[in-house]
């Protein structure tokens, strides 16, 4: 709960500016709403970008960070192309999502979030995405029975991907990866340390 002393004050805005990628742009929004109107998935959002920016100014920290709205962004860049103030809205949306996740505030069953996590975990194993395992883990994330159903439903898709050599059944054996996964892990670890160091504590 935000108290009156946080409402319409700079505290949350400053937090966003410090800890969210491109967050320093949020203050430049003039509430024209062209981003909201330009978003192809807009109708699925509880809060369109411009409204999120207003909520940030209003100090609605929890409401913003627990929202699933910014998880809806598909990076089409329509909003960035049209924003009259040049706000990198796509990046801000991803930045907000990442920050919410970092704080553990992201909505638990938000599917995009789940997918992102699976994608990340898959990628981190060998430094390259294993399409087959990625697909399977998606299908079976809600249990075995549901996984079989999902797999059957998407059978055609899988076959086509194999025909087009976008997926290889042999990948199940381990699959391709970068030369030195250990080094990658080190790089990622270092990057995370740097990023963690930048995050300011606003709690």
């Amino acid at each position: 709960m935000s108290t009156n002393s946080q409402k319409y004050r700079n505290s949350f805005l400053k937090e966003v500016e410090a800890n969210v990628e491109e967050g320093e742009w949020v203050k430049m929004c003039m509430q024209c709403g062209v981003c909201a109107g330009s978003c192809p998935l807009g109708k699925h959002w509880d809060h369109p970008p411009q409204e999120i920016f207003m909520m940030i100014r209003a100090g609605k920290r929890e409401e913003v960070l627990t929202s699933d709205s910014m998880w809806m962004c598909t990076s089409c860049y329509n909003c960035i192309a049209r924003c009259p103030r040049g706000l990198p809205i796509t990046h801000i949306m991803h930045g907000l999502a990442t920050y919410a996740k970092r704080l553990g505030l992201a909505p638990k069953n938000q599917p995009t979030q789940g997918f992102s996590q699976l994608f990340w975990d898959n990628l981190m194993k060998k430094g390259r995405v294993n399409e087959l395992k990625m697909g399977l883990s998606m299908y079976f994330k809600d249990g075995f029975a549901q996984g079989v159903k999902n797999a059957m439903a998407n059978q055609k898709l899988g076959q086509n991907m194999m025909k087009a050599k976008r997926m290889n059944a042999m990948e199940i054996m381990g699959g391709h990866g970068v030369k030195s996964p250990g080094d990658l892990a080190k790089i990622i670890k270092k990057a995370q340390e740097i990023e963690d160091g930048k995050i300011q504590d606003f709690s």
């Binding site: 805005l13 203050k27 003039m30 509430q31 209003a58």
Partner: peptide, 14 residues
């Protein structure tokens, strides 16, 4: 107006 926003003046249609 933009300079005000840059300076972190908070604007709200209220």
């Amino acid at each position: 107006y933009r300079a005000g926003q840059e300076a972190m003046v908070l604007f709200s249609k209220g």
